[in-house]
């Protein structure tokens, strides 16, 4: 119990002191995971929407595969990206290993299936209602997909938040491809892992509480933006 109290007071003092290292770590976490979500959205939204709208052979198997890949273990993704980006790997010449870029790539791979799978479900439900009317208005396939994505924007925002939550909370992938280098690739989760391994559990838990706080702030902002959008366009 005293551990928890200590963790809580550590978290509060961390936030109040606005430690510059902590701010740097928070900003890098947001930048890496935010970038990963944007990239995952660029791929996952159209991909999920296309699978939601199209009917083709092997579609059911693809949907199963997509849904299953939402549960990809971060460590496995991290290892795959490491092997690709390692100097001895096929993309070693990029020199991306142990940089924030590598972390963005790994988290993008983790988040894209989530975005695509949840988008597929949302768009499939929407297209039941919209597809024939849109076709009768003369909308081409890409136009229909774009329209469905726009119509589903409120539920898709939740999808992106789910992806962001996964990215900002995972440690397995970023610690392998980022290396947890101080001031370069250290993010909230790898900092927590480091303090845990040093046995400084109150500091680790304090950082964890800060992370939870960030998640609440991000989700609160998103919720508020959704409310505004909902009032504006029903």
């Amino acid at each position: 119990m005293s551990d928890l109290t200590a963790a809580f007071s550590t978290a509060v003092s961390l936030i109040l002191s606005l430690d510059s290292d902590l701010v740097e770590i928070i900003l890098l976490s947001l930048r890496v995971s935010g970038s990963a979500v944007v990239l995952a959205a660029l791929v996952g939204l159209p991909l999920g929407a296309a699978i939601g709208v199209l009917r083709f052979r092997g579609r059911r198997a693809l949907v199963v595969l997509l849904n299953a890949s939402m549960g990809l273990p971060p460590v496995v993704v991290g290892l795959l990206v490491y092997l690709m980006l390692s100097r001895s790997g096929p993309l070693g010449w990029l020199g991306l290993l142990f940089t924030p870029g590598a972390m963005v790539i790994a988290q993008t791979l983790l988040v894209t299936p989530i975005v695509a799978a949840l988008t597929r479900q949302a768009i499939e439900d929407l297209s039941e209602e919209y597809d024939e009317p849109l076709r009768s208005l003369g909308a081409s396939f890409p136009q229909r997909v774009a329209t469905l994505l726009y119509e589903g924007r409120l539920s898709l925002a939740t999808t992106l938040l789910a992806g962001f939550g996964r990215a900002i909370a995972e440690v397995g992938a970023v610690i392998i491809v980022g290396g947890n280098i101080a001031h370069v690739t250290r993010v909230m989760t790898t900092a927590i892992a480091l303090e845990t391994s040093r046995g400084d559990l109150p500091l680790a838990l304090g950082l964890g509480l800060v992370l939870v706080g960030i998640a609440i702030v991000v989700n609160g902002c998103a919720q508020w933006m959704q409310e505004v959008a909902r009032r504006a366009a029903a």
Partner: peptide
């Protein structure tokens, strides 16, 4: 392009009445 269909349950987009008509014309 010469025909149009109005469904029993009208499919309206999540935007203004004006923008709903505009959508079809932009297509």
């Amino acid at each position: 392009r010469g025909r149009a269909l109005v469904f029993q349950r009208p499919m309206l987009l999540r935007r203004s009445a004006w923008a709903n008509v505009d959508y079809a014309l932009r297509l």
